[in-house]
Amino acid sequence: MSSVRNAILSRLRDAKPEAKTMEDITYQPWVSTDEKLITARFIKGLSASHAEVISTGHQDLSKLIEKVAVDKELQRIVLGTSGEFHEQIVQASKSLKTDFFDCDIKDWKSTLFNDVDAGITHCLAGIADTGTLVLWPDIAEPRTLSLVPPCHIALVKRSTIVSNFAELMEMQAWQNNMPTNIVLISGPSKTADIQQTLAYGAHGPSQLVVILIEDL
């Protein structure tokens, strides 16, 4: 196949495109240093996308998750295997049937697909501009944890919320160290494919509960 590759590349090079330098256009997406404004915009954006946002302090996190489980009538819940608030999550899930995502998906795919009501994850960050959660799934919290169960409960720390996507990427120098997968989540799964009518719960979670941990 390298001949195909070379044929394509040489056709492109034959056009002798003149390399353009970096553009001199300033574009500033929404930005603020006011903590109140940042929080308000984050909550407003997520709520507009039909996510449920609940603020809480550190102390009562377990109780709050427990309450969400009762309200949403969750029976069976899947958790990761570590993370900053792992202990509180485990504590909160005591009254429920709990699975830990600690083995290869192929060993329990059917259970994950058919029997689990919710998955709980941490978040790397939040983006105020668009009301967005940023997840870096890893060994402790695999990709399908936030995707396959019909309800996704996400924990995000107030201190991790930034103004906009570009800022986050630049601040953390993502380009130097991309993980297998990064996913930005802005609300529960949705579609408007039938007669432009918005419907939630297309293929991903139909419910997104965001627990905003006030740590500032």
Partner: peptide
């Protein structure tokens, strides 16, 4: 303003 998912 943004889609539900952006998958990298």
């Amino acid at each position: 303003a943004i889609t539900t998912y952006f998958n990298m």
